[in-house]
Simulated scan of single mutants.
Amino acid sequence: MINAILKKGKEKAVLQRHPWVFSGAIEKVKGKPANGDVVKLLNAQGIFMAYGFYNDQSRVALRLLEWNEETAIDEAWFRAKVATAVVARKHILEDGSTNTCRLIFSEADYLPGLIVDKYADHLAVQVLTSGIQNVMPVIIDELQKLLNPLSIFDKSDASSRAHEGLETVNNLLAGVHPPELVEVKENGITYGINIAEGQKSGFYCDQRDNRRIVASYAKGKKVLDCFSYTGGFTLNSFKNGASSVCSVDSSALAIETLQENIRLNNFDTGKHTSVQSDVNKQLRRFKEEGEKFDIVILDPPKYAPSRSALDRASRAYKDLNRVGMLLLNEGGLLATYSCSGAMDMETFKQVLAWAALDAGKQVQFIHQFCQPEDHPVRSSFPEGEYLKGLLCRVF
């Protein structure tokens, strides 16, 4: 096996079992590994530290897998990691009210660059590293043995694949092509999921718990669901007795799917309004028209893909939430989220405080949101904690 040698003094993160080694921490590589090969990481004194996937095109040159030198990184190793991750989520699906969840969450499940989502009898995968790309035949076979899915569809269309020297793909890996809409259940609500053409892997199951919590306040309330996508917060609000919901999203396909989801669940279409529009523009339009709501939900896309973008993203989050606050009735609720890993909770609270000041409002934080248990955060990899949110009462 080819050896990668760490620079002197760069051992700390590896000893703490952080799974990333940046290219600047590597002194040299003895040999010429292909991107995605497993290499042995040694410290400056030549002592073994870990095994990991190597890639010379990525800023993260090594993604560490195993810290025990006696453990072989072979087919059995990858099969065991897949099986452990799948079994750990089994209880989420047991009562029948939910049949969709994340089965494998990249570094959190010791498979860096692999995401697997279950949608009823179909699986969607995203492959983000060359190392995982190399072992996909083994992973696909193990998923088939464990779950016998009708299909496994590759949604590896993330631009980040370019950093690993990989092209984007969107195709069937195994089984039959999924239908245009796959019906899944979450919190007892039915959704039609477009796996092949939908955003990311097809559905945002990371908000499962948060949708239920926000909806518990919705009875008899007028709700505004922004960045609604296919209607997660909208449908949960209706299930819990919202008097009306207005859903806003820029995607025509998302709005069309949301409307079909309203019909699938036999909710009153007369109580629902959908608006295809840029959310920031639509919020200002509502303000000009004097619209008011009891609950405003803001679940925007990632504004801060990296720490270098955090200042600009903070200004965008502040402006978005400022206008959201202005649309609330006195004592109304703002449920607001950030899926930017670079934005920590304390910074997010500060952004909300600035937004409240600019809006001339007072805000109480009454609940903190996070990602659900099928998106676990590994103790040695805090970067895996990306989703955070706040439920605010606004005066």
Rank of each mutant, 00 (worst) to 15 (best):
G96C: 08
R59F: 10
K81D: 02
S380R: 11
D37M: 01
K388C: 08
E27M: 11
E385P: 03
F227D: 01
V323D: 06
Y51K: 14
D95H: 12
D268R: 02
D56R: 04
D319M: 05
P33L: 05
L298M: 08
C339R: 04
D95R: 12
L326D: 09
N170S: 13
I297Y: 03
F22Y: 15
N266M: 07
S314W: 04
E385C: 13
V169L: 11
L173R: 04
T98R: 09
S23K: 12
D154H: 08
D311Q: 15
E256Q: 14
D37K: 00
K32P: 01
E66M: 09
S274D: 00
Y119E: 04
A25L: 08
E11I: 13
E288V: 14
E11A: 12
A359M: 09
T100K: 04
S159P: 05
N266R: 10
L326Q: 15
F48G: 05
T98H: 07
H18D: 03
H272G: 03
S251T: 02
P149G: 09
G9L: 14
K200D: 11
G341T: 02
W20I: 02
A85T: 07
Y204G: 07
G360H: 05
V169P: 00
I213M: 11
G231M: 03
V176E: 13
A356F: 08
R89I: 07
E69P: 09
S23W: 01
N35F: 00
T230P: 00
L357E: 15
A83T: 14
R211Q: 10
Y119Q: 05
Y386H: 10
F293H: 06
R17H: 15
N329T: 10
L123A: 03
E11F: 09
A13T: 13
A72V: 13
P112G: 12
S379Q: 12
Q282N: 10
C339E: 02
K302D: 07
K40D: 08
R211Y: 07
S216W: 06
K12F: 13
G341C: 06
